[in-house]
Design a protein around this nucleic acid. Structure first.
Length: 514
RNA sequence: GAACCCGUAGCUCAGUUGGCUAGAGCACUUGACUUUUAAUCAAGGGGUCCUGGGUUCGAGCCCCAGCGGGUUCACCA
């Protein structure tokens, strides 16, 4: 590998540290007693007894301003940055001035881990600063970090913004871009808030198979793999619904799973091949109950993550406090197109699609046609949280028939900012009806619908042993995180979004010297 | 999968109709400076202009192909 000038220099600095008897990668622990953010927020220099008079901090050296025998430097720990003041005669009280003249001034580079001990004070310029009396090298960096500078007005210079580099070397992104770090902290808070909400209600977090013999529970193209010992194909799960329902059959009253799903489809601003979903099933409930539960859940999450029930997204202030507006699928289409499609058969729907300039093809059944109209004409208008309820039966083979409306099922989807973020049913627990629905899906598949669902005999068998009336819900965690953090790309809420493999370094052709 | 845009120093970017030895700031090196803060001042090093072809007296710039990235669309959550 060809080393850059700066990489060579850093390796030389590492060796020079060793020559001075300093281990550039010391094994022993360093005792941390204070953090940058804590000091910035809590330091009080008024009165006779300022606090933080004996502190020990560790982190990366992120910049230094050397002024001869005294210097200021930036220390960045897991909580933020703080200035440190290093005077030669303070860290080198004796005759030996190597620690300042050589180690600090020459051999330390931006990014190196150091530990400092000292006391906190405020400089003439008013900056809260750690006055260092002891300096210790905790770890050398051999590659130069991107250097991002900010001035007093907060203007950023030389920002590290190239998406490819940021995603491929996320550790650098996290090191130099504090706002990126914030997004992932919020993501973690979101997931833990959700977990807490469910746990507090006594529902059980479970894990179900990722490798499945039949990819059921949703309509999507799967990743296929192979198990050697069993010599059989296995699929990475596209959904976990059919397994979670088996646990409800087994007697758990509420089960939920937060985990990765895998879909072998396109990648773009809102799709990654693997993504995180939360699915929950609660016995003896229906979709009306579930709508109220989701309102409480999202309001709770919004407060836990952002501190408010109203959260800005793409210039819209989204209000997560319930109750949310509810529209049936038919009502929503009538509202945004002026056309009542509730009584239409397939041929009339097809004509309506044409009139509305909605593109359709021959494989589409009645449900799919309605879904196309909805997707084209309604979806983008649903900015504030809105429930769309009561979907055509053809689109939803796992939901129970509507209690009063023939041809519909008890299903809702929640839309925020024109995007679906949750999907829920009163679950179908009649095994005979369920088998019939699967058979309808097989017919759609035969007609050319690639998204039609596969029939799962093991799941049907479990229903025959009796599943209590149940409501189920799925929420896309990545998309919810995007909403709660005002991010517009799924890649910004995934630590390591899927990328093309990096171009390999080509082998140098074997030149024959002349 | 399709269209459009982009690729110049470690980072962020200039680079004129195609014309001298390819530039700036930061980073880096050397020196000065004991309360600075995008520290400052002085001097200096650093480039396969993504790769491979082509046009031309001459290509960072024009043409073709490839690689990588971004954006939009389609599919999906």
């Amino acid at each position: 590998m060809q080393l850059s000038e700066q990489e060579i220099l850093r390796r030389e600095n590492m060796e020079k540290l060793r020559e001075l008897g300093i281990d550039p990668f010391p094994p022993e622990a360093f005792d941390v007693t204070a953090y940058a953010k804590e000091i910035q927020e809590e330091f009080n220099d008024e009165g006779d007894k300022p606090n933080f008079q004996d502190v020990s901090l560790a982190g990366r050296l992120m910049g230094s301003r050397v002024m001869g025998k005294a210097s200021f430097a930036e220390l960045q720990d897991s909580t933020g940055r703080i200035q440190v003041y290093i005077a030669r005669d303070e860290i080198c009280p004796g005759e030996d001035k190597d620690m300042y003249n050589k180690v600090f001034k020459k051999l330390l580079d931006i990014g190196d881990y150091i530990g400092v001990k000292g006391h906190v004070f405020r400089t003439r310029m008013g900056e809260i600063t750690v006055h260092v009396t002891e300096l210790k090298v905790l770890g050398k960096t051999l590659s130069p970090l991107p250097v991002v500078k900010r001035d007093e007005e907060g203007n950023v210079y030389d920002a590290f913004t190239d998406p490819e580099q940021r995603y491929r070397q996320r550790y650098l992104d996290l090191t130099v871009n504090p706002h990126v770090r914030e997004i992932f902290i919020k993501r973690s808070r979101l997931v833990s808030a959700m977990r807490r909400f469910f746990d507090d209600r006594g529902w059980l977090e479970v894990e179900t198979p990722i490798l499945q013999p039949i990819h059921g529970g949703a309509a999507a193209r799967p990743f296929k793999t192979h198990h050697n010992t069993l010599d059989m194909p296995l699929y990475m799960r596209i959904a976990n619904e059919l397994y979670l329902k088996r646990l409800i059959v087994g007697g758990f009253e509420g089960v939920y799973e937060i985990g990765k799903m895998f879909r072998n489809e396109g990648m773009d601003r809102t799709h990654n091949p693997e993504f995180t979903s939360m699915e929950i099933y609660v016995a003896y409930k229906d979709y009306n109950w579930m709508m109220e539960m989701v309102e409480k859940l999202l309001e709770y999450i919004a407060i836990e993550v952002t501190g408010h029930t109203k959260v800005e997204y793409e210039g819209n202030l989204i209000n997560y406090a319930g109750p949310y507006r509810r529209l049936t699928m038919y009502e929503s289409i009538e509202e945004y197109t002026g056309i009542d499609i509730s009584g239409m058969d397939e041929a009339e729907l097809r004509a309506t699609c044409k009139k509305l300039h909605v593109e359709v093809d021959e494989s589409m059944g009645r449900g799919k046609l309605i879904d196309e109209i909805f997707g084209e004409k309604v979806e983008a208008n649903l900015i504030q949280p809105t429930y769309i309820t009561d979907y055509p039966i053809e689109m939803t083979p796992l939901a129970k028939k509507h209690r009063s409306e023939p041809g519909l099922v008890e299903r809702f989807e929640l839309f925020v900012n024109g995007k679906e973020i949750a999907n829920a049913y009163t679950e179908l627990n009649d095994p005979i009806d369920q088998r019939g629905r699967f058979e309808e899906q097989l017919k759609l598949a035969a007609r050319g619908d690639e998204e039609a669902m596969a029939l799962d005999d093991a799941f049907l068998r479990s229903l025959e042993y009796g599943m209590p009336p149940t409501s189920g819900l799925g929420i896309g965690i990545d998309r919810l995180t995007m909403l709660m953090t005002n991010q517009h790309s799924i890649q910004e809420v995934l630590f390591f979004p899927q990328m093309r493999p990096q171009k390999k370094q080509e082998e140098a052709p074997e030149d024959t010297a002349e």
